[in-house]
């Protein structure tokens, strides 16, 4: 597995706050990585560093490039959608196709047109005449027609209807993703992408608090819902986190034999959201 991104000791401060505080991680080829963290945790700053949009300290290698030096060259192999509303309002759909075709050596116009043909987008329309969902579809059509090695999505579905949101990820998986490509995505709607991720990166207060594949998460972590009378027995196994649901306690264990836990209650793999809360709150405690 060759590394598409390798970061080591990334640091970036805004005044006295450290947006990135010595962040190190690796992203391998063909992975779909969820970069997950609360607001202000440093997600967007990390993505901006990877895309060459901001300055920082530390070592960062993206597809063999230092993003600080060679942004334009890097953008031949990296695509990103930073937010939904970034296409300029005056741009016409066919102008967008013309422009990207002219400046991007990896752009296949026919692919973008085939994708747009499945939508209700008129190629003569201006962006300002399109609905929010259509703008996202247009942006996605442009990006998916680019033969890029790394696709970075920062809250790509924010402000979208639920139908578009589902569509977005389905299209991405079916029409775009293959083992040569790598996707790095951040979102608040963890549940939406949980099923497509291969890797997790949790970030909190500028630090990486978890880096793991989904498989390892399923192997290492187990959640047990325990009746009150067995709660003390459960605590003996030093749970990572404990929370109350309908008067029952839910314990999260890491690296404890499932054999031992089975008598306590029903075992299941924690959801990404629950794992995240446990990790972040567990750290704070």
């Amino acid at each position: 597995m060759s590394a598409v991104i390798s970061a080591s000791g990334l640091t970036k401060s805004f005044g006295s706050t450290r947006a990135l505080d010595g962040v190190s991680f690796e992203v391998g080829e063909g992975r779909i990585v969820g970069l997950i963290g609360p607001n202000g945790a440093g997600k967007t700053t990390a993505l901006k560093a990877i895309l060459g949009l901001t300055s920082f300290h530390g070592d960062l290698n993206v597809l063999g490039h230092d993003p600080r030096k060679d942004r334009a060259r890097l953008m031949r192999e990296v695509c990103f959608i930073a937010d939904v509303a970034v296409l300029p309002r005056w741009l016409k759909v066919n102008q967008a196709l013309d422009f990207v075709e002219a400046v991007h050596p990896g752009f296949q116009r026919s692919r973008a047109e085939a994708f747009l043909a499945k939508t209700n987008i008129d190629s003569r329309a201006k962006v300002k005449a399109l609905s929010k969902g259509m703008v996202t579809q247009l942006h996605l059509a442009l990006v998916m027609a680019i033969d890029a090695k790394l696709l970075v999505l920062d809250e790509p579905t924010i402000g979208l209807d639920i139908i578009y949101r589902k569509d977005f990820y389905t299209t991405l998986l079916n029409a775009y993703f293959d083992e040569r490509r790598t996707i790095l995505v951040t979102t608040h709607q963890v549940e939406e992408i949980e099923n497509i991720l291969t890797d997790l990166l949790f970030i909190d207060r500028g630090r990486i608090v978890l880096q793991s594949t989904m498989e390892d998460v399923a192997n290492d972590y187990v959640e047990v819902m325990v009746k009150p009378e067995k709660a003390d027995a459960a605590r003996q196994y030093t749970p990572v986190y404990e929370r109350e649901v309908f008067g029952k306690s839910v314990f999260l264990f890491k690296g404890v034999e499932s054999q031992a836990l089975r008598p306590l209650g029903e075992l299941r793999t924690p959801s990404v959201a629950d794992l995240f809360v446990a990790k972040v709150k567990g750290m704070a405690a």
Binding site: L51, I81, V86
Partner: peptide, 20 residues
Amino acid sequence: AERKDRSILFWKSLPVSDTA
């Protein structure tokens, strides 16, 4: 204008240098 309408990130996602 490109900063005001926030389209700058779209333009910057394309392989065109800032000098150009």
